[in-house]
Design a protein around this nucleic acid. Structure first.
Lengths: 172, 172
DNA sequence: ATAGAAAGTCAACAAGACTGCCCTATGGCG
DNA sequence: CGCCATAGGGCAGTCTTGTTGACTTTCTAT
């Protein structure tokens, strides 16, 4: 009784999509898809002695220029020591600019330099290309469902952060 | 420059879901959701000196008992040296049984022991609980879309492996 | 003015991926 | 039989990225 679980919507009785088998399929899909999802930028990064962590930092600094180290920490969910190493190399290499906070001089506000912006764009575009194809293949309705499930999967606190990101300035 | 990618194409109109902004939202959702996705089993694993790699091995051995080291390698997409370290500890700890291949005595066929099955179940159940909640929250139609997009995101070769898994014996 | 909290940095260590190389055992084939 | 390919294991060393602990700088409240 595994595959006939093609769910048809409506019909209150239709909880077939919650069988252990269906859940396991979702788990495996997450594993395989995430691997592909990170593969494209990883190739670019490998060439320049950077890793995924650098990409993530660039992404969120680009997303919200001027954010502090602590804010970035909260979004990334790592320790500040871990982030610091990554940040240090990015700053040394001239991809990120760290300026002393204006309100509070203990803080460091982070900005991408022109070079940083260029790399971020290159990395993200590689990732976007795959996402674009997947979106196009699956169609708008599937995309909506995709986002709904992912959002429901996040920890509540993370979900708030994610939703808050929605409203950030869209410059670029 | 960021084409605000409103409509373009002749028929256009419904390509709004392919804007760079929409794609970026998807990228961020993947990042946050995947972190949550791995968090629950990670807590259990941390207590016993195991890591994510052990979980993955247990999962796929449980999925297809008797598979060879080479097959497992192909599914996991890691090097044999990397897998070997993980597998060695699992075998030493009595969670996995490695038997000499029946067709080909060079091969090792992998099985979970009772203890291995128990741990696999515990780990997977933690992960399933989150997935179940997400599925239930989002609903069947969203789940279908979720799976469609993830599948479209995989590398073609991986997708074949993923689809092939569909037909494996369903014990449990 | 000073104590304590907060932000950030430096140092050392561990997990888990990788490569490269070498080894054994087995299987297939001319 | 002999040769070579394949399956698997082991060892050494590297890299990224996570961790904790201890430190400095800066701010804030008493």
């Amino acid at each position: 009784m595994q595959d006939k679980a093609r769910v048809q919507t409506m019909m209150g009785e239709d909880l077939l999509f919650l069988t252990d088998d269906q859940l396991r399929r979702g788990i495996e899909a997450m594993f395989f898809a995430y691997r592909a999802f990170t593969a494209d930028p990883d190739i670019i990064l490998a060439d320049m002695d950077y890793g995924r962590a650098h990409h993530r930092a660039l992404h969120f600094i680009n997303r919200d220029p001027g954010l502090t180290v602590t804010s970035l920490l909260a979004v990334l969910g790592v320790t500040k020591q871990s982030l610091n190493r990554v940040l240090r190399t990015l700053i040394e290499d001239g991809l990120v600019d760290s300026r002393i906070g204006r309100r509070d001089r203990r803080e460091r506000q982070l900005y991408l330099t022109a070079a940083g912006t260029a790399l971020e764009r290159r990395l993200t575009e590689a990732q976007r290309a795959r996402m674009r194809l997947a979106y196009r293949t699956a169609g708008p309705q599937a995309v909506a469902g995709f986002r709904q499930v992912l959002e429901a999967m996040m920890d509540p606190e993370t979900r708030s952060q994610y939703q808050a990101l929605k409203d950030l300035p869209e410059d670029r």
